[in-house]
Design a protein around this nucleic acid. Structure first.
Length: 216
DNA sequence: ATCCCGAGGG
DNA sequence: CCCTCTGGAT
């Protein structure tokens, strides 16, 4: 099969985006949060863990540590206990405290609004930084590439790359900037729905006719 | 490339 | 049992 042109890929991407948007009109982050601080904490906890489980621990977490000041002076043991069920609990507790301390020390408790500054904070990589920028500040500086986006970008033929960074660059070429943040939510909803890692249900998929991986 | 780590599904 | 879930640091 001849390789799809960049122009054709953009056009197919646009149609897929529209269909997914109609299918998931309320697609947005499923992490419960009331401010940038809570979103950042929830996103760090979401590594290799379902949003649903993160939402089970954050109410108690935010009750005990409602802001960067409180979290910066949290006890490791207590925090580990609260976040235990989300997995990677030692790393997550250490990173959360370190993130809060750096936030206080370097930025007066306010989140910076650039990718470079955010990724300087402990526990915040490119993915988490993109989540904060796109969802808390409305800044589309990149595409959130998580496990779902990675898998669907491959299946849908938007990228043949393996690393999240390269996949992100491919997606940024296919989709216009104002769609970068919504795109991630649409792909994540679709990935949790008919297009999970195992046992895809292409017969339920609204973009199966535009998908190279579809058997329908 | 490897480690961190729990919980749920199949 | 093995795989997966909105990754990041070494």
């Amino acid at each position: 099969m001849a390789r799809e042109s960049k122009r054709a890929k953009r056009e197919r991407g646009g149609v897929i985006f529209g269909l997914l948007e109609r299918e998931y009109p309320k697609a947005m982050t499923a992490l419960d949060h009331r401010n940038p601080f809570e979103l950042a904490v929830a996103t760090i906890l979401s590594a290799q863990c379902t949003d649903e489980r993160v939402n089970m621990v954050t109410p108690e977490l935010f009750r005990r540590f409602p802001d960067p000041t409180a979290l910066a002076s949290a006890s490791r043991d207590e925090l580990e206990e609260v976040v235990h069920s989300t997995g990677f609990f030692r790393n997550k507790a250490k990173n959360l405290i370190g993130m809060a301390q750096a936030l206080m020390r370097e930025h007066g408790g306010e989140f910076p609004r650039t990718l470079a500054q955010l990724t300087e904070l402990p526990g915040i990589g490119r993915k988490t930084a993109n989540v904060i920028l796109g969802n808390a500040f409305g800044i589309d500086e990149g595409v959130v590439v998580d496990t779902h986006v990675k898998r669907l970008a491959g299946r849908m033929g938007f990228s043949r790359e393996k690393t999240p960074e390269k996949i992100e660059l491919d997606l940024m070429e296919v989709f216009p900037r104002e769609r970068w943040t919504p795109l991630s939510h649409l792909l994540i909803f679709h990935g949790r729905g008919p297009c999970p890692a195992r046992k895809t249900r292409c017969h339920e998929c609204v973009v199966a006719h535009l998908c190279p991986a579809s058997l329908v």
